[in-house]
Amino acid sequence: MLLDKSTSMSLMDISKIFSLLQPKEDEEEDTNCCQELNQAVFKDDDKLLTDLLSQDKYRKCINHRSGWGIPVTPLRTAAAQGHLHCLEVLLAHGAEVDSLDVKAQTPLFTAVAAKHLDCVVALLEAGANPNGSLYNNCSPVLTAAREGDVDILRELLRHGADVDVKPKMPDWASNATTCRGPLYISAVYGHLDCFKLLLQHGANPDYNCTEEKMLTRIKQPKTVLEMCLRYGCGLEYIQLLIDFGANVFLPTLIVDKTTRQNEAVMLLLKERVCPKPLMSQARLALWRFLPMENKMCSIDCLDIPKILKNYLNHVS
């Protein structure tokens, strides 16, 4: 008798659990609507997407996630596929511009990673955070610097992205890797245009990481100059760092007999003994006086001849 009762209760409990797991009618309808929106975006059918979003039941699902593997919003799908018109339709109908997926990636990060410049611009103009998500280990700027996407990088920096952003690492993992910011990455991957652009927007020419707390936890933080010498980045990188005020007395790598960059080493040694020309010193003094963010924009606002603006911006 007791056994039968126990068995009966167990079956009842299982039935309750399964009933709870079954989607409610409203939830099932929302999922279907979201899937239809995602399908329209995936097919790049902005007309169908507009028709769907003219109905309330679709509009209320515009920020819902659906799909196998990584459930995503329609806006994330549009950014990943580079479907600009669909992306613009979604933004016009109130799609959340900085919605996160399960990897804490924003639509902007997805568009940057997929190299869709037009979608990047549209998202930034709609107010997307140029730094991406605080919860993602990487960032749009780091991604663009690694891939050498100078046009995308320019748009991010123009909209206020952190030029010295670093990978997000836990405190216990603090080492030289945590200092590998966009300037370092662009040099190692050989993207000279990105390297110069970062310096023009105020990247620190000595250390990628400027956070004192982080630097104190690293026994021997490496300067960007040291990294450029070690990885054989070439004279252009060394000269740019010197022009933008890197401390030429910081690197210790130049005494390493295994260094293959003899010309770069000689350039650095020459800079140690020969003072900078007066014009270069004046440019550096003014450069350091300008605010850290949007240095190029600040120079463009100065009431001085164009030729001087170009000189201050290191534009030949």
Rank of each mutant, 00 (worst) to 15 (best):
L156C: 05
L157T: 01
D162S: 06
D162Q: 05
V163G: 02
V165H: 00
V165C: 09
P167F: 05
K168S: 12
P170F: 09
W172M: 13
A173R: 05
A173K: 04
A173G: 08
A173E: 15
N175K: 01
N175G: 14
N175T: 13
A176M: 13
R180K: 11
G181S: 08
G181M: 04
P182Q: 05
Y184G: 00
Y184N: 03
I185L: 12
A187L: 07
A187E: 08
V188K: 07
V188F: 07
V188C: 10
Y189P: 05
Y189Q: 15
Y189K: 13
G190I: 11
C194E: 05
L198D: 01
Q200S: 05
Q200H: 00
Q200L: 05
H201N: 13
N204I: 02
N204P: 01
N204M: 03
N204C: 09
D206N: 14
N208T: 09
C209A: 04
E212M: 12
M214A: 10
M214C: 13
M214T: 14
L215R: 07
R217G: 09
I218N: 06
V224S: 05
E226K: 08
M227F: 09
M227D: 13
C228V: 15
C233E: 10
G234F: 08
G234N: 08
L235R: 14
L235H: 12
E236V: 14
I242E: 04
I242A: 08
A246T: 02
A246P: 01
V248I: 14
V248F: 11
L253M: 04
L253D: 01
T259I: 12
R260F: 03
Q261R: 06
Q261A: 13
E263R: 09
V265T: 04
V265F: 00
M266I: 14
L267I: 12
L269F: 06
K270E: 15
K270I: 14
K270W: 13
E271N: 06
E271H: 06
R272N: 06
R272F: 12
L278P: 06
L278M: 14
L278C: 13
M279S: 15
S280R: 12
